[in-house]
Computed example of a mutant assay.
Amino acid sequence: MNRLTPASDGTPLRGVPSGGPAPGDVLSDLLRRSAKGDQQAFAQLYDATSARVYGLAVRVVRDPAQAEEVAQEAFLEVWRTSSRFDPDRGSALSWLMTICHRKAVDRVRSAEASSRRDTSYNQHNQAIDHDTTADAAQASMEARRVRDALTGLTEVQREAIELAYFGGYTHTEVAGMLDLPVGTAKTRIRDGLIRLRDKMGVGS
Results as ranks from 00 to 15, higher is better:
residue 74 A to F: 04
residue 181 P to T: 09
residue 171 H to N: 12
residue 5 T to S: 09
residue 74 A to T: 12
residue 35 A to V: 00
residue 25 D to I: 03
residue 127 A to S: 14
residue 92 A to F: 03
residue 72 Q to K: 10
residue 162 E to D: 15
residue 116 R to P: 03
residue 121 Y to H: 05
residue 48 A to Y: 02
residue 182 V to K: 14
residue 9 D to G: 02
residue 148 D to H: 05
residue 42 F to E: 03
residue 108 V to Q: 07
residue 76 L to K: 12
residue 1 M to P: 01
residue 157 Q to C: 01
residue 78 V to W: 08
residue 22 A to N: 03
residue 158 R to G: 06
residue 39 Q to L: 13
residue 183 G to F: 01
residue 19 G to N: 01
residue 71 A to V: 04
residue 114 S to C: 11
residue 90 G to C: 06
residue 68 E to T: 09
residue 169 Y to P: 00
residue 98 T to C: 05
residue 38 D to N: 15
residue 84 R to G: 03
residue 43 A to D: 05
residue 30 L to A: 06
residue 164 A to S: 14
residue 5 T to Y: 12
residue 117 R to K: 12
residue 120 S to W: 15
residue 181 P to N: 10
residue 118 D to I: 11
residue 16 V to I: 10
residue 46 Y to P: 00
residue 29 D to I: 04
residue 5 T to E: 02
residue 160 A to T: 04
residue 82 S to W: 01
residue 58 V to P: 09
residue 152 G to D: 05
residue 182 V to H: 14
residue 124 H to K: 02
residue 21 P to C: 06
residue 30 L to C: 11
residue 132 T to E: 12
residue 106 D to M: 08
residue 130 H to C: 00
residue 111 A to E: 15
residue 119 T to E: 12
residue 154 T to H: 10
residue 194 I to W: 12
residue 142 E to K: 11
residue 118 D to M: 13
residue 94 S to L: 07
residue 119 T to I: 01
residue 195 R to I: 00
residue 71 A to E: 12
residue 137 A to P: 00
residue 174 V to T: 11
residue 118 D to Q: 09
residue 204 S to N: 08
residue 41 A to S: 08
residue 155 E to N: 14
